[in-house]
Structures are given as C-alpha cells and as structure tokens.
Design a protein around this nucleic acid. Structure first.
Length: 357
RNA sequence: CCGCCCUUAGCUCAGUCUGGCAGAGCAGUCGACUGUAGAUCGACUUGUCCCCCGUUCAAUUCGGGGAGGGCGGACCA
C-alpha cells in the first residue's frame, strides 16, 4: 500500500480531518515528534477513540467503529478507551455501581462491531479510564488544567457532548479536561471520534499548545441522521436501529424512516448505506442487491454507494425498494453482533438491569 | 447552621387559593392521501398529581413529617 492509498484509507468517510497536513506528515513518518514519548516504540502512529459506557450502543456507533478497521488496515495501532469515569461524570448517565458491567458490555459490543467490519479485535488495545485517570500525575495535571481554564470555555467545548441541564454538575466540566489529558496519557498521535467531539478536541489542541505539547491530530466521523428525520435521538428508539434489533424490527424501523424520493439531505437510510453497509460489503467484495417487482424495473445490483446514490437522486430508485433492500442487508451486517449477545445474555442484563434484567 | 421556593402525562407546564377520583401544547399511536416516510387532514391513547401520617363522607388540592432539587443568608479565627 503506498502512502496515498494509506492516507485515503485513514481519511475516507470522515467529516473532517484537523489538519490534513499534519496527518500527511504523520503518515510520512516525520511527525516532528522525536522525543520518544509516543508510538509505543514500534514506530506505528497511534489512533485512539474513547467511549463513555452509558446507553446501549446502536448503529451510529457502528459506523464510527467500522473505521477502526480502516485504521488497522492502514497499519495504525488502535487504542479504544472505555471511559468509565466519564460515563458517571456526565450527569451520572451511568450509576457508579454499573460502570464495571457497562464497560464489559461496551468492550464486547465494540469487539463485535470491529469483527463484523472485517478486522481482528485482538489487534485493538482496550484501556479503561479508571486504570490511569486516578494516577497522581494525571490527577495533578487535571487540577492544574482546572486552575487554568475558565468555566465558560469548558462549557462551550463540551456543549455537544455533555448533557445540557438547567443545573449542570461540576462533573460535566471535568469531563472535557480529562478527555484532553487522555490523549496524551494514551500516547495517541490521532484523536478519533464523532464530529460532536470537535469542541472538546479543539480545546484540547489549544491547551496542548499552551503546555508546549504537540496538539493531537483529529479525525472526526460524521453523525448519522435519525430515521425520523433530523438528528438521531438517543431517547427515541424509532429514530435508530439498535445493535440487537431483530431483522423484523430493523425492517419495521426502516419502513417508517424519513426518506423523500431523490433527496439526500437528512436521509438516514442513505447514510446507513454510505457509512456502514457499503464499506462492509466492500470489505467482503460483495455487492448490494435490490429485489424489485418487474413493473418498477426489476432487480438491480450496485457495486458502489455512489452509483446507488446517483440513481436515487435521479429517482430511478424508489424509496420503498431502497428501504426494503437496506433492511435486508443491514440485518445481515448486524447478524454476527446479535448472535454474540444472544450467546452472552448476561452482558446486557447486568449492564442494563431495567431493560434486560 | 438559618430562611424561602419547587416536585402533576415521555417532554414543557397549567390547575386545585374557595377539598368531590386532572388538563393544554409537543411527542406518540391509528386511519386517509401519495408505490416509502414526511407534510397535510381526521381520530385516539397516556398519569402511584414525589413519599408517609393526619383532618374529612371525600385530599393531587388542607395540616404535620420526610425525600430530592433550586435560591438566599449566616459563618469567614
């Protein structure tokens, strides 16, 4: 794989790279970081993504995690942080007593998604936040950051991530500062995450500069639209496909999805295809087949998302046919993950006693 | 440590001041219309009225206690 291919693999299907020049330099091996405090000594650039183990994971997480396969294939070393303390710090989204169970569930879910994306989960290093975020050195750095950063600056940085409320907790302010420290603590060259993380990492880059450190390169994944139009909502079950939805449930949710003929904007169905289904099919060298009655043109097959989108925009492809085919392929992509959890029901039952106990 | 205020449908809130088993908007569900969905139109659903005790024929509404949340004051050697 040459440098251009590698760069393309790292940057494809992303919302933004900050900055592309820094990424190029990193992949070229002259990151300017000769101090030996990163890369773990093996010379491979390291990318990290952090997840706070809060609610159940869904297809939105899957699209973001699928890219970890790209990173691995591009020869990067990948670290996944299970940010258990963050899960509690953010308005106690996860009760303290459930952090162990939810961390275990998140790790299993992420491994399942990585495997379903065509990469080996064994190649990923998993780290739990509480393993290092309580170290004296880290704690001292956190206090010094807190002393040096204004409340409004941190609030602004975390506004897309930390739960907004009329009476915000102090924990929500610690959260972005800790995330900033995590990048360095994990020796990551690249911070990867959803575009909602942008505010926090941009603050992190500023603070790193203040402290005389190299700012992390940031790669952001797009956030998917909800199936009901607009943003995907965590609380609205019908607005997203869950990791463990049955094929019937998936079909039903897709049937109800907002999907105007010929329109791409806010079209969650197309986004599922672009960022998840097609990349996974491509990994397996498979194509996307659509069964369609003769009266509407008969069966068709697409080898690329772009070709499908072009037909959809031209209204050669009807939303209803698209939805049915998407449901079928999506169920197939999710099947191995669903099986994994069916074989280990305690993972969900212990992490979410109210919903699965 | 002291004082004041708040707690009603999934969400935002009204109401009970002058006690009689509770309402609006949004959301949601279901039809009609489009070969999907949405929009539009029509119909519909939803509640331990924070908990306990007391007064009363009857308490979400009154009284007492408690829990959770908010605000202010005091203390500052």
């Amino acid at each position: 794989m040459d440098r251009a291919e590698r760069r393309e693999l790292v940057a494809r299907n992303t919302a933004e790279v900050v900055t592309p020049e820094e990424l190029d330099a990193l992949l070229a091996g002259d990151s300017g970081d000769d101090s030996g405090d990163s890369d773990g000594g093996d010379g491979e650039p390291t990318v990290y993504i952090g997840y706070a183990p809060t609610g159940e994971m869904h297809i939105g997480h899957f699209t973001t995690i699928r890219k970890l396969a790209d990173f691995l294939h591009a020869g990067l070393s990948v670290t996944v942080l299970i940010a258990d303390l963050h899960a509690h710090l953010d308005d106690e989204k996860s009760p303290f007593e459930l952090l162990d169970a939810r961390s275990a569930y998140y790790r299993a879910a992420i491994e399942g998604m990585v495997e379903a994306s065509g990469a080996d989960p064994e190649e990923i290093e998993f780290v739990r936040g509480s393993e290092f975020e309580l170290d004296p050195g880290y704690a001292l750095d956190l206090l010094r950051l807190a002393a040096d950063t204004t409340i409004s600056r941190v609030q602004r940085a975390g506004s897309e991530v930390v739960r907004e409320s009329e009476n915000p907790k102090l924990g929500g302010l610690l959260y972005p500062l800790m995330q900033t420290l995590d990048v360095g603590a994990l020796d990551a060259d690249v911070a990867y995450g959803g575009i909602d993380q942008r505010g926090i990492y941009m603050l992190g880059r500023e603070l790193a500069a203040d402290r005389g450190e190299d700012p992390p390169i940031c790669v952001f994944a797009p956030l998917l639209s909800g199936l009901s139009g607009g943003k995907m909502s965590a609380s609205e079950a019908g607005s997203k496909v869950s990791l463990t939805d049955s094929p019937d449930a998936i079909a039903e949710k897709l049937r109800g999805a907002y999907c105007p003929a010929g329109e791409i904007e806010d079209n969650g169905v197309l986004e599922y295809l672009e960022y998840l289904v097609f990349p996974v099919l491509g990994e397996r060298s498979e194509t996307f087949g659509i069964e369609r009655p003769e009266e509407y043109g008969g069966d068709v097959t697409y080898g690329s998302y772009d070709a499908l989108e072009a037909d959809f925009v031209a209204e050669e492809l009807h939303p209803q046919d698209l939805k049915e085919a998407t449901a079928t392929h999506l169920a197939e992509v999710l099947a191995p993950i669903r099986q994994r959890f069916a074989g280990r029901p305690e993972l969900l039952a212990e992490a979410y006693p109210e919903a699965h106990g």
